Amino acid sequence: MCEDYWRDVHGFMFARVAGLWQYRQLRLDANRPDLWPAVQGLSFDGPGVAQPQGIPHGLFLSEADLAAFGNHPLPKEAIPNDARNFIGRIGALLSPATRGRTLIDRINDPALQGPPPMPAFVLCFVPRTHASPEEFHRYLIEHVAHP
């Protein structure tokens, strides 16, 4: 029921706001700590209540489009208020212009690509301490991400 509402009502409201170029809803399965190699100081276990079940993914072609979207009454008021009807937490992350990259397919061919040839994973990292975002990012790069 909750996923139906997110897909059929809330998602459509979000996707129709001016400025948004593309909107996707990514459904997530339960955490699988057995998939990852051990990393000292890093736990792959997480309580079920803390695990995301889905991620909304909005893409914008320009800073102006993002500003138009952010200033519209739907994402400012109606969408956050509506989301409280069916989820317990909402998180948002904007990638800084110098860190995030989006590759845009401009061939305008909406042909479906079918299911992905292999599973996809979303990794969510939460610091145990009150580290600054810069310290936490540096830790991930130096101790978790491998070349």
Rank of each mutant, 00 (worst) to 15 (best):
residue 28 L to H: 02
residue 113 Q to S: 10
residue 134 E to M: 00
residue 22 Q to D: 11
residue 70 G to I: 05
residue 43 S to E: 04
residue 88 G to R: 12
residue 77 E to W: 03
residue 69 F to K: 01
residue 31 N to W: 00
residue 38 A to F: 01
residue 57 H to Y: 08
residue 40 Q to T: 14
residue 95 S to Y: 03
residue 11 G to P: 10
residue 74 L to M: 10
residue 113 Q to P: 00
residue 79 I to T: 10
residue 13 M to H: 05
residue 8 D to L: 09
residue 131 A to S: 14
residue 70 G to L: 07
residue 80 P to C: 08
residue 80 P to L: 11
residue 87 I to N: 03
residue 22 Q to V: 07
residue 81 N to P: 00
residue 102 T to R: 00
residue 101 R to F: 13
residue 19 G to H: 04
residue 99 R to C: 05
residue 87 I to S: 10
residue 133 P to V: 05
residue 33 P to W: 00
residue 13 M to N: 10
residue 89 R to F: 11
residue 51 Q to N: 14
residue 41 G to N: 01
residue 14 F to Q: 09
residue 12 F to T: 12
residue 131 A to H: 04
residue 44 F to I: 04
residue 58 G to L: 06
residue 33 P to L: 00
residue 129 T to S: 13
residue 15 A to S: 15
residue 115 P to F: 01
residue 105 D to K: 07
residue 9 V to F: 06
residue 104 I to Y: 08
residue 11 G to E: 05
residue 17 V to K: 02
residue 101 R to D: 06
residue 47 P to H: 00
residue 76 K to M: 12
residue 7 R to S: 14
residue 117 P to V: 14
residue 9 V to S: 13
residue 68 A to P: 01
residue 101 R to E: 12
residue 109 D to R: 13
residue 120 A to L: 15
residue 63 E to T: 12
residue 124 C to M: 12
residue 80 P to E: 10
residue 113 Q to I: 11
residue 43 S to I: 07
residue 134 E to N: 02
residue 130 H to A: 11
residue 111 A to D: 08
residue 115 P to S: 06
residue 104 I to L: 08
residue 107 I to A: 11
residue 134 E to D: 09
residue 112 L to K: 03
residue 48 G to L: 13
residue 34 D to K: 02
residue 100 G to L: 01
residue 102 T to K: 00
residue 8 D to K: 09
residue 129 T to G: 11
residue 125 F to I: 07
residue 31 N to R: 03
residue 59 L to E: 09
residue 48 G to F: 04
residue 115 P to N: 07
residue 119 P to R: 07
residue 128 R to E: 09
residue 8 D to M: 05
residue 26 L to M: 12
residue 39 V to T: 08
residue 43 S to K: 03
residue 138 R to S: 10
residue 42 L to I: 15
residue 113 Q to W: 02
residue 106 R to A: 14
residue 89 R to N: 15
residue 18 A to D: 14
residue 102 T to S: 11
residue 87 I to C: 15
residue 121 F to P: 00
residue 64 A to C: 06
residue 97 A to Q: 10
residue 119 P to M: 01
residue 124 C to N: 04
residue 99 R to F: 09
residue 17 V to H: 03
residue 49 V to R: 07
residue 110 P to E: 05
residue 71 N to A: 13
residue 66 L to F: 12
residue 79 I to Y: 03
residue 34 D to S: 11
residue 37 P to G: 01
residue 134 E to R: 04
residue 55 I to A: 13
residue 33 P to M: 00
residue 41 G to K: 01
residue 74 L to Y: 06
residue 101 R to S: 12
residue 98 T to L: 05
residue 58 G to M: 03
residue 96 P to E: 10
residue 129 T to M: 06
residue 106 R to Y: 05
residue 82 D to R: 07
residue 133 P to E: 05
residue 19 G to W: 07
residue 76 K to P: 05
residue 14 F to S: 11
residue 37 P to D: 02
residue 51 Q to D: 07
residue 75 P to D: 07
residue 126 V to S: 10
residue 113 Q to M: 11
residue 109 D to H: 08
residue 26 L to W: 05
residue 43 S to H: 03
residue 116 P to T: 10
residue 20 L to D: 01
residue 79 I to F: 11
residue 110 P to T: 10
residue 27 R to I: 13
residue 73 P to E: 05
residue 52 P to A: 14
residue 88 G to E: 13
residue 47 P to Y: 00
residue 22 Q to R: 15
residue 40 Q to L: 06
residue 21 W to H: 15
residue 107 I to T: 15
residue 74 L to Q: 09
residue 47 P to Q: 03
residue 123 L to V: 11
residue 33 P to H: 01
residue 10 H to C: 08
residue 131 A to Q: 06
residue 7 R to A: 13
residue 24 R to D: 09
residue 22 Q to I: 01
